[in-house]
Design a protein around this nucleic acid. Structure first.
Length: 587
DNA sequence: GCCGTTTTCGGCCCGACTGTTTTCAGTCG
C-alpha cells in the first residue's frame, strides 16, 4: 500500500464525514492528514514496518496513526467499511461535480434517493431537482452541465500544453491600455507538472474594461461567472481560466494569494494570526483591538485595520518575518519554517547546468545528426553532452547493436575532433531486458563514457518481477545512470508497478545516479521521488531525452521540477565540470 | 481530529460569487 493509496482512503473518510455533517474541524484534520501522507517522501508502509512513531508527523495524531497502521497491515479500514454500509460509495462521486458539495449531495440523496451521477441526471432532466428546497431551475441546469463535463473526463493539463495556451491569452489581455500588469499565478507559476486551471492576475485601477476584454476573448467557449473583480471562463480547449483584477497596492499580496498553494496560504495566515496580523489577497493588516472578539456577523470592511504590506511579494513575506519563498516551494512542505529561519535552499537554476546527458540522433530515432546535436548543445553554452541512442532491442527506433555502436564511435571521434568547444561523451540508452540483463554486451559497454539504462518494454510485469528486473540492472557493474525510472507518461500511462524505494536504495548502494527526465510528458522522477533521492544522498542528473535540437530547450521543465523538490546545484551531477562528473559516476 | 513559549481545553484562514434567499447558506479557490 503506497502513500498515495493511504491518502486516498483517508480522503474518502474525510468526504464521508463531511457528508454526515461532522465537525468541520474534524474534517479539516482529515484533509491535513491527507496532505501530510501525500507529501511524505518515505513509504509509510516501511515506517510502520520499522515501528516508527507516526504521530511525529505533522497533522498525524493517535487516530490517524492507527488508521495508517491498520491500512498498512490489513489493506482496509474498518470504520470506513462500516460507514459504506449506510452510505453508498457513489455518493462521493456526486460531491465531485462542480456546484455539488456535501450539503447538496446529502439533500439529493435524502429527498430524492439519488445515489449516482446517472440517477442525478435523470432526476434533473425530470425537473425533480429544481423542486427541492434550496435548489432552483438554475442549479438544476448547472448540475446537468457539470454532469456532461464529468463524463468528458476533463483532466488536468500537462504544463507544457498549458504553456502553449497561456501565452496568446496573456498577449491578448496585456494589449489593453488599462492593464498595468498581467501575471499568471496558481499551480502554473508553481510549475506543477499538470495544471487544473489557469489563474490570471491583472493590476488595473479601472477593472471594468479588463473584465470585458477577458470575457470577449475569441477562444472563450463559456462564461462560468463574472463579477466586478473576479471572472471565470472555459476556453474551447476545455481549459478553465480565472481572472482576478486588483489595484496596484495589493499586487504582492494578490500574487501570494493566487499563486498558492492553498496549503501554503493557510500556513501563512496561521502565522499571521499568531503575530496579530491578518493576511488576505488585499494585503497584510494589523488586527484592530475590537476585531475578532465580538464579530456579530455584521458587515466587515475587508480593508479594516492598518495595512502593513501588500505591494510586493517580498514585502508581504517580510511583514510575516519570512524570506521570500520561490513559487516552486510553496506547497507547505516545510518552506515557511525554513523561510523563518533564513534556511531556504539555494535552488538550482538553468544556468547551473553544464551539460545534457540524454539525447538521440539520426543513428536511432532522433531527427538531427550528431553534429547538429553537438552544435545545438554548444550553442546553449554547455561544457559537455552525452549522446544516447537506443540499443538494438528497440528495433522500431533503429536501435544500435554492438557493431553499429562501434561504427558510431568512429563518426563521434571525427565530429568531436572538429569541435573542441564542447566535450562529447559517448553513451547509449541501453535497454533493460525482461530478465534484468542488458541489451549490449559488457565489452561494448566498457567503451562508453557513460552507461544509461532504462525500461521500454514489458510494463505489465508483476510488481515483484519488475522490481527484481530493475534491481538486477542497476547492480550491473558498468551501469551509471537509471533513466526515466518509473516509465510514466503524464496523463497517458501510469508508472509500471515496482518498489521505487527499494530501487532507489539499490542505486545508492551501487553508485548509480537517477535521471530526472525533463520532457514535460515524463517529468520522471516526480518531485516526491526526487526529495527521497536527495534524502538518501543519491545523485540526480537532469536530461532532456531530446529527439531533435528543438527539444533541448525542454530542459527548463526539468529544472523547474527539480526546484519543486528543493534540489540545489550540489544535488545534481550535471552541474559539475566534466572531470568531476565522470569521477563521481566512476564505479 | 490535532495541537500547545498564553493553552491538555478551546481554539482551528479569508474572501468572492451564485442562487435562492428577504438576510444568507453553500461552494469554491
Amino acid at each position: 500500500m503506497t502513500n498515495l493509496d493511504i491518502a486516498r482512503v483517508l480522503a474518502q473518510l474525510g468526504d464521508l464525514l463531511e457528508l454526515q455533517g461532522a465537525n468541520p474541524f474534524r474534517i479539516r484534520a482529515y484533509r491535513n492528514a491527507v496532505r501530510t501522507v501525500e507529501s511524505e517522501t518515505k513509504p509509510l508502509a516501511r515506517s510502520v514496518e520499522e515501528g516508527r512513531d507516526l504521530t511525529e508527523l505533522p497533522g498525524i495524531g493517535k487516530e490517524m496513526a492507527s488508521h495508517i497502521v491498520e491500512l498498512v497491515e490489513t489493506g482496509k479500514l474498518g470504520v470506513l467499511e462500516e460507514m459504506f454500509e449506510t452510505v453508498p460509495r457513489t455518493l462521493l462521486e456526486l460531491m465531485r461535480l462542480p456546484g455539488v458539495g456535501p450539503k447538496k449531495a446529502k439533500k439529493l440523496w435524502d429527498e430524492l434517493g439519488v445515489e449516482t451521477v446517472d440517477a442525478l441526471e435523470e432526476a434533473a432532466k425530470a425537473g425533480r431537482v429544481a423542486a427541492l428546497d434550496g435548489f432552483g431551475a438554475k442549479s438544476q441546469e448547472k448540475i446537468l452541465v457539470s454532469i456532461a463535463e464529468y463524463r468528458q473526463h476533463r483532466e488536468r493539463v500537462p504544463l507544457g500544453e498549458a504553456d502553449e495556451q497561456v501565452a496568446p491569452l496573456v498577449d491578448y489581455l496585456s494589449a489593453l491600455d488599462e492593464v498595468d500588469r498581467l501575471e499568471v499565478a496558481g499551480s502554473y507559476r508553481r510549475r506543477k507538472e499538470t495544471v487544473g486551471d489557469i489563474d490570471l492576475l491583472a493590476v488595473a485601477t479601472e477593472p471594468g474594461p479588463v473584465m470585458e476584454r477577458f470575457l470577449a476573448y475569441p477562444r472563450v467557449e463559456r462564461v462560468e461567472m463574472s463579477g466586478d473583480t473576479r471572472g471565470s471562463v472555459v476556453l474551447d480547449s476545455g481549459l478553465e481560466v480565472d481572472l482576478r483584477i486588483l489595484p496596484p497596492e495589493s499586487y504582492g499580496a494578490a500574487m501570494v494569494y493566487f499563486t498558492g498553494s492553498k496549503e501554503h496560504n493557510i500556513r501563512l495566515r496561521q502565522r499571521a494570526v499568531q503575530q496579530g496580523l491578518r493576511v488576505s489577497e488585499y494585503g497584510v493588516f494589523e488586527v484592530g483591538e475590537d476585531e475578532g472578539e465580538e464579530d456579530t456577523g455584521a458587515e466587515r470592511d475587508v480593508l479594516a485595520g492598518k495595512r502593513v504590506a501588500g505591494a510586493t511579494e517580498e514585502e508581504v513575506y517580510r511583514a510575516l518575518g519570512l524570506d521570500w519563498v520561490p513559487p516552486e516551494l510553496r506547497e507547505d512542505r516545510g518552506e515557511v519554517a525554513a523561510a523563518a529561519e533564513g534556511k531556504l535552499p539555494r535552488l538550482i537554476e538553468l544556468s547551473d547546468l553544464k551539460g545534457d546527458l540524454q539525447m538521440h540522433s539520426t543513428w536511432s530515432d532522433g531527427k538531427n545528426t550528431i553534429e547538429e546535436m553537438l552544435e545545438a548543445c554548444a550553442a546553449r553554452g554547455y561544457e559537455y553532452f552525452a549522446l544516447t541512442d537506443h540499443s538494438q532491442s528497440l528495433a522500431m527506433t533503429g536501435g544500435l547493436d554492438e557493431a553499429r555502436l562501434r561504427e558510431q564511435w568512429k563518426e563521434i571521434d571525427e565530429v568531436a575532433a572538429r569541435h573542441p568547444e564542447i566535450r562529447f561523451l559517448k553513451s547509449q540508452e541501453v535497454d533493460i531486458l525482461a530478465d534484468g540483463s542488458l541489451d549490449i554486451d559488457d565489452d561494448a559497454l566498457a567503451g562508453l563514457d557513460i552507461v544509461l539504462v532504462s525500461v521500454h518494454s514489458r510494463f505489465e510485469l508483476p510488481e515483484d518481477e519488475q522490481t527484481e528486473r530493475i534491481l538486477k540492472a542497476v547492480s550491473h557493474p558498468l551501469v551509471n545512470i537509471l533513466a526515466h525510472p518509473t516509465g510514466r507518461l503524464i496523463g497517458r500511462r501510469k508508472p509500471y508497478p515496482f518498489d521505487v524505494d527499494r530501487v532507489l536504495r539499490a542505486c545508492k548502494d551501487h553508485n548509480v545516479a537517477v535521471e530526472l527526465n525533463a520532457h514535460p510528458s515524463r517529468l520522471d522522477l516526480k518531485d516526491t521521488h526526487l526529495m527521497r533521492a536527495k534524502e538518501l544522498g543519491i545523485p540526480v542528473v537532469i536530461s532532456t531525452d531530446a529527439h531533435g535540437v528543438k527539444e533541448l530547450g525542454l530542459i527548463r521543465y526539468g529544472i523547474e521540477q527539480a526546484r519543486r523538490a528543493w534540489l540545489e546545484p550540489k544535488d545534481v551531477l550535471n552541474t559539475r565540470p566534466v572531470d568531476e562528473l565522470l569521477k563521481r559516476l566512476a564505479k
